[in-house]
């Protein structure tokens, strides 16, 4: 293993898995199940999709800067997903949702076990990435 590496390879592989599953999952919802993504979903996609490639490239060509360029994407996406979940739980009222076209951001497409919605899945993915990157860095 590369000694200058700050985050361990295993953690990066985990991050890559989380980002990939989130990406493929969101594509499954929109392309296969035909759910129309709302604008909040698009913002979260924008910050999740590049992470797949960033983690992948770092796994193939390791360097010690991964934290620096993945964290801004993760925190921005995390911010959007927190906001989106607050909308879903009615903590922020619908009227301030910045949605103009098509689907309102509080549309509930799936509801597994009574509480698992797509925005919650997104939040879990971002939160896992955040934790992995922060803890993965210290542990080394």
């Amino acid at each position: 293993m590369n000694s200058s590496r700050v985050i361990s390879t295993t953690v990066i592989l985990l991050c890559f898995l989380v980002a990939s599953v989130a990406t493929l999952g969101s594509l499954f919802f929109s392309e296969i199940m035909n759910f129309v993504p709302c604008s909040m979903c698009w913002y979260q996609r924008i910050f999740m999709y590049p992470l797949v490639l960033i983690f992948l490239i770092n796994l193939l060509y390791p360097d010690d800067k991964l934290f620096k360029y993945s964290m801004p994407l993760v925190t921005t996406g995390l911010f959007f997903s927190i906001y989106h979940n607050l909308l879903m739980f009615d903590i922020i009222p619908e009227s301030v949702v910045p949605c103009v076209s098509g689907v309102p951001c509080s549309t509930e497409y799936i509801n597994w076990f009574g509480f698992v919605t797509i925005p919650l899945l997104s939040f879990i993915a971002y939160f896992m990435l955040f934790i992995f990157l922060v803890l993965g860095r210290r542990r080394y």
């Binding site: 592989l13 890559f16 599953v21 493929l24 499954f28 296969i32 992948l56």
Partner: peptide, 26 residues
Amino acid sequence: KNKKVVIFTLLLLVVGFIAAITVYQN
């Protein structure tokens, strides 16, 4: 060794995705 693991993971993801699509469409 890392690269092999990564490529294998990548393949697994793609195969899993295609399998999920097939199962869902059926």
